[in-house]
């Protein structure tokens, strides 16, 4: 294990997130078991009060999850000098088999927590707790993921041994040697990847704007927004990063959050996260439009989510376009 202040901060934050979510899930279980809206019993009053605690905790965990995602990448980057061959976070994450799975789970958990908050907000709109059971089932579903994330993250940091030769962004994300997921994406030919990116982006924006303007939300946009998220990350590795670094071979999705590039990566990733959470959130809510207590309120909320998602993708693509146009790299 490497005893580094930032490593301690990582482990602390994931332990806190797990503790909080397990605590919330315990009360979530009680709510699932004893909830009875018709009753004026003390127990029911206590449970209703607990819903406030659980929402507060989940909002906190959501924020923490986002921060810790960035902290994690930061940590990986700052540990780089300890590993031969690692030149940035990409290499450090590869020092053992737990680095990338942890990162993936962090993203998934952030999205799940975001969807929970969307569901929670919708539930709060209705006068009879219309989504209370679904909401807490989702919480029960999320809890194990957060626990696994903590286990993986601990395994990652505890199994770290300085001086292990690792691949770095030079080899992991470089198109020459094909190995691992990263290099497969980097190896995707730039041109087709570019076209896929632009085409999906255009489609997503069109479908989103149509749904928003016509007030006709459907399942197509949520699916597209999720697909767009994956493609955007792939595009980031495949060609967007090249323009930002102005280096024709540096395919790294992490370095762009570093100081050298004006922290532009934060803005890009936050926009992507916002877009995918609100986009998918709008889809998650669709089946509940018919519920008595939500009938009048849900469409407006879904429409807000659509707006948020479409405009985030729009700002994202504007930024990317700006980076590409203003870049000194010509491909």
């Amino acid at each position: 294990m490497i005893l580094h202040p930032t490593v301690i901060a990582n482990l602390l934050s994931s332990a806190i997130a797990t503790g909080m979510v397990v605590y919330a899930a315990y009360y979530g279980g009680q709510i699932l078991k004893f909830w009875n809206l018709q009753s004026g019993d003390e127990l029911q009053l206590v449970l209703e009060r607990k819903t406030y605690l659980i929402s507060t905790i989940l909002s906190f965990v959501f924020a923490l999850q986002l921060l810790s995602l960035f902290l994690y990448v930061f940590t990986a980057d700052s540990l780089t000098p300890l590993f031969v061959g690692a030149m940035c976070a990409a290499g450090t994450l590869n020092v053992n088999g737990f680095g990338y799975p942890t990162l993936l789970l962090k993203i998934v958990n952030f999205l799940l927590a975001g969807l929970w908050l969307v569901l929670n907000h919708a539930d709060n709109l209705g006068y009879d707790y219309p989504l209370i059971r679904k909401k807490y089932w989702l919480l029960m579903f999320i809890a194990p993921f957060i626990v696994i994330e903590t286990v993986l993250e601990s395994a990652y940091f505890l199994n770290m041994q300085a001086d292990v030769i690792t691949s770095c962004c030079g080899s992991l994300f470089s198109s020459e040697k094909a190995n691992g997921l990263g290099s497969e994406i980097a190896a995707l030919p730039s041109q087709p990847m570019m076209w896929t990116f632009y085409a999906t982006l255009l489609l997503t924006l069109l479908v989103g704007s149509y749904s928003y303007l016509k007030g006709k939300a459907g399942y197509l946009y949520p699916v597209l927004s999720a697909l767009m998220f994956v493609i955007a990350i792939a595009a980031m590795i495949s060609f967007i990063s090249l323009y930002i670094y102005e280096l024709p071979t540096h395919h790294c999705p992490f370095c762009i959050v570093m100081q050298e590039y004006g922290y532009i990566g934060y803005l890009l990733y936050i926009l992507l996260f916002l877009a995918v959470v609100s986009g998918m959130g709008s889809g998650v809510l669709l089946p509940f439009r018919g519920l008595e207590s939500l009938r009048d309120l849900l469409p407006a909320f879904i429409s807000k989510l659509l707006f948020l998602s479409v405009s985030s993708y729009l700002v994202f693509s504007t930024l990317v376009a700006y980076e590409i146009v203003s870049s000194n790299l010509v491909m």
Binding site: A9, L12, S13, I16, L64, L67, L71
Partner: peptide
């Protein structure tokens, strides 16, 4: 920024 983030995680959180 890394130092400040770490500090934030160790105290404010």
């Amino acid at each position: 920024l890394e130092q400040l983030t770490t500090l934030f995680f160790l105290t404010v959180i």
